[in-house]
């Protein structure tokens, strides 16, 4: 009898997990969310950037190029612009450049060649980014970067950060108070694999006490979320004025998926109530990586419940909210 009950429980749990976002009564009421999202999707042999309502309606491609990959969209704080990377060429001859366009996909403009992993300053004036480390050949590795650069959207001038020893940074995120840029680092500055905070206006950087990848600030700057592993998000309070900005006692698991699946690309909604993320079978989460079956999802911070926004599985990654 116990075995039958256990089996029934397992079946019920499995069905709830599989049907999330597709049942008549979704775990999260997406229609209550007023924001839209942009993300990258793979269609007709290349990545393009899409815009979509949070409830999965109104999907529209902002780019539609067969031979060029447009990826990693990041929306400006005023919601009017999107910075993104554009990959052209194949194999070792591939190159990745940083571009800017209007929120409707018009007015594309090159910002910096051989550049990637960008983020916006909270006032929308600057775009921080890193450059490709090797001039010899393309590398898809997220960490294969050198330096930290700031593009001034008013003047068009690019300047290098005061600390020119920075290397192997990726997953850049600018703190809402404008003082820090967080990043994941692999094998740079004598660090093995960790997440750091970099002061925007000095040479100082420090460890966040966060292991894993891709720390992202909540809109009020009080909390960060990150991928502790490829299958689990953590959330914690963050105090950037402390020697150890994230205390162990503040860390808590937020969302996890079963073995064989991954979650990545966490991004907080402008009201701080939700996170958008990508989810799918084991794949390559890095920009340009193959991630068949991945979809965009939204989780509610208060309940931890989550639902699908897209269901086509077309390597949908890198969601970013439009304020």
């Amino acid at each position: 009898m116990n075995r039958i009950r256990l089996s029934l429980t397992i079946i019920v749990l499995a069905v709830s997990a599989l049907s999330a976002g597709q049942s008549n009564i979704p775990a999260v009421d997406l229609s209550a969310i007023k924001y839209r999202l942009v993300y990258e999707t793979f269609e007709n042999s290349s990545f393009d950037i899409c815009i979509i309502n949070a409830d999965g309606t109104g999907r529209k491609k902002l780019t539609d190029t067969a031979d060029v990959h447009e990826m990693h969209p990041k929306v400006s704080p005023d919601g009017k612009k999107i910075s993104y990377v554009e990959d052209t060429g194949e194999g070792r001859e591939r190159r990745r450049d940083l571009y800017l366009m209007n929120i409707d996909g018009t007015g594309r403009m090159l910002i910096s060649k051989d550049s990637r992993e960008q983020c916006w300053s909270p006032d929308g004036r600057f775009i921080a980014f890193v450059k490709s480390e090797s001039t010899r050949r393309f590398s898809m590795e997220s960490w294969a970067t050198k330096g930290l650069y700031l593009y001034d959207t008013r003047t068009g001038i690019v300047r290098e950060h005061a600390n020119n020893t920075l290397e192997h940074l990726y997953n850049l995120c600018w703190s809402p108070d404008g003082k820090y840029i967080t990043a994941t680092v692999i094998g740079g500055m004598g660090l093995k694999h960790t997440n750091i905070g970099i002061e925007v206006n000095s040479q100082r950087y420090f460890k966040l006490n966060v292991s894993g990848c891709r720390p992202e600030f909540s809109p009020d700057g009080s909390t960060i979320g990150w991928g502790r592993t490829d299958s689990e998000f953590n959330i914690a309070k963050i105090y950037l004025n402390r020697a150890v900005p994230v205390a162990d006692r503040d860390k808590r698991p937020f969302l996890s998926v079963t073995k064989g699946y991954e979650v990545y690309h966490l991004d907080w909604s402008p009201d701080g109530k939700y996170i958008a993320f990508s989810f799918g079978p084991e794949g390559e989460q890095n920009v340009g990586g193959t991630a068949k079956g991945w979809n965009i999802c939204i989780a509610e911070i208060a309940t931890g419940k989550w639902v699908y926004v897209t269901t086509d599985g077309k390597q949908n990654k890198e969601p970013d909210w439009i304020p």
Binding site: S134, T135, R136, W143, G187, G190
Partner: peptide, 24 residues
């Protein structure tokens, strides 16, 4: 020498390259 990204943790030109994924 051949301008490839090197993610090594323990820096030193004479030290072996490490943190190397098989593909790299």
């Amino acid at each position: 020498k051949i301008d490839l990204p090197d993610p090594s943790h323990f820096k030193g030109d004479k030290n072996p390259a490490e943190m190397i994924a098989w593909v790299n």
